[in-house]
Simulated scan of single mutants.
Amino acid sequence: MKKKRMIIGITGATGIIYGVRLLEVLKRLDIETHLVVSQSAQMTLAYETDMTIHDLKALADVNYSAKDIGAAISSGSYQTMGMIVAPCSVKTMSQIAYSISDNLIARAADVVLKERKRLVLMLRETPLSLSHIKHMQAVTENGGIIFPPVPAFYTKPETIDDMVDQTVGRVLDLFDLDTGEFKRWGEE
């Protein structure tokens, strides 16, 4: 049986820990990861972590340049579970909303949508302008899911890692992947 594949896009919005944690968890769940990191995300990586781009790419099974529009994940015939953009900048969300596929993150997302696979955008922006909301609406109407990484406090998180794990777990729930790493409402 072929291993399941997930595309992970990481953009320059703040919150790169979400993309990092997704890669770590998907590796543990034995899901093959296909990573695209934008140029802006490389800058954010340096601001928000002690990781190098090499460290980040080492977490993925397959890496692509954001400029590689001809990559395997740019074709609907290449089978994946779908795609998560974590974090997702407003720029990338806007490109995806209107099929502006001038980079591999936007192109892969467009392919995921046209193939009716799951696309989850962990949008990192606040406050939102009306144009942001309209772009969120367009993504949703096209079948994507806007998932701002908003922490849940009913879990009584004690660390930032607790909040990140809960959010990543909820995102992966959308793909029927249970991380087993966070408290759920109504469960002991």
Rank of each mutant, 00 (worst) to 15 (best):
A109Q: 07
V111L: 10
A109R: 08
V120I: 09
M122L: 09
A109H: 09
L128S: 09
E125S: 06
R107C: 02
L121R: 14
P127L: 14
S101I: 05
R116F: 07
I100S: 06
P127R: 10
K114H: 13
A108T: 03
V111G: 08
D102G: 01
V120N: 11
I100A: 05
L123R: 12
L113G: 08
R118S: 09
P127F: 15
K117H: 15
L123H: 03
M122R: 05
D110L: 02
A109P: 03
P127T: 06
V120E: 12
L128F: 15
A106C: 03
L123K: 09
E125P: 00
R116C: 10
R107P: 00
L113N: 08
R124V: 13
R107G: 00
D102E: 10
R124Q: 14
A109S: 15
E115K: 11
V112N: 10
L104W: 03
N103R: 14
L113D: 07
V120G: 04
L121I: 10
I105G: 06
S129G: 05
L113S: 07
I100H: 10
L121C: 12
P127I: 11
A108I: 03
L128D: 04
I100D: 04
V111D: 11
I100L: 09
V112F: 11
V120K: 13
R118P: 04
R118L: 05
V120D: 09
L104Y: 03
L121N: 12
R118Y: 05
I105F: 05
S101K: 02
V120A: 09
P127D: 15
D110T: 02
L119G: 05
A108K: 10
D102K: 01
S129V: 01
M122N: 01
K114A: 14
K117T: 07
S129R: 13
L113F: 12
S101G: 08
I100W: 03
D110W: 02
L128R: 10
L121Q: 13
V120P: 03
I100T: 01
E125D: 12
S129I: 02
R116H: 09
E115Q: 13
P127Y: 14
V112H: 14
S101M: 13
E115F: 07
L119M: 06
E115V: 11
E115P: 00
I105T: 06
L123D: 07
L104V: 01
D110V: 00
L113K: 12
V120T: 05
A108G: 08
L119Y: 04
V111A: 09
A109W: 09
I105Y: 05
L119K: 10
K117F: 09
V120W: 13
R118M: 10
P127C: 06
V112Q: 12
V112M: 10
K117L: 15
V120Y: 14
D110R: 00
S101L: 04
V111S: 04
K114Q: 12
L113R: 11
L113H: 11
R124Y: 13
